Computed example of a mutant assay.
Amino acid sequence: MRLLPIVVTTAGLVAAAPAMAADISVAVELPRIATASYHRPYVAIWIEKPDQTAVQTLAVWYQQTRNNEGDGKDWLKDLRTWWRKGGRAMTLPADGISGATRAAGRQSITVPAARLRGLQPGQYTMVVEAARELGGREVVRVPFRWGAANTANASGSSELGAVRVTVSR
Results as ranks from 00 to 15, higher is better:
residue 114 A to H: 10
residue 119 L to F: 08
residue 69 E to W: 14
residue 11 A to C: 05
residue 30 L to E: 04
residue 69 E to M: 06
residue 150 N to H: 03
residue 82 W to Y: 03
residue 34 A to K: 15
residue 139 V to R: 02
residue 49 K to L: 07
residue 45 I to K: 06
residue 116 L to K: 01
residue 86 G to R: 12
residue 5 P to Q: 07
residue 156 G to W: 04
residue 51 D to E: 15
residue 33 I to N: 12
residue 160 L to P: 00
residue 162 A to M: 13
residue 112 P to V: 09
residue 61 W to E: 08
residue 18 P to H: 04
residue 160 L to Q: 02
residue 81 T to H: 05
residue 129 E to P: 13
residue 47 I to S: 02
residue 121 P to C: 03
residue 114 A to G: 12
residue 52 Q to Y: 14
residue 12 G to Q: 15
residue 78 D to M: 10
residue 162 A to R: 14
residue 81 T to D: 01
residue 28 V to F: 10
residue 101 T to C: 11
residue 92 L to Q: 10
residue 14 V to D: 09
residue 163 V to I: 15
residue 112 P to H: 07
residue 152 A to P: 11
residue 56 Q to G: 04
residue 98 S to M: 08
residue 128 V to P: 00
residue 140 V to Q: 02
residue 139 V to M: 01
residue 36 A to K: 14
residue 98 S to I: 01
residue 116 L to E: 09
residue 9 T to F: 01
residue 109 I to G: 00
residue 49 K to V: 08
residue 165 V to K: 12
residue 15 A to L: 13
residue 11 A to K: 03
residue 165 V to W: 12
residue 155 S to A: 07
residue 137 R to A: 10
residue 167 V to W: 04
residue 145 R to F: 08
residue 140 V to A: 01
residue 114 A to L: 12
residue 63 Q to K: 03
residue 130 A to Y: 07
residue 48 E to V: 13
residue 108 S to A: 14
residue 119 L to M: 13
residue 90 M to L: 15
residue 135 G to K: 03
residue 91 T to G: 00
residue 23 D to K: 09
residue 120 Q to I: 09
residue 15 A to I: 04
residue 115 R to C: 12
residue 103 A to T: 11
residue 35 T to G: 14
residue 97 I to R: 05
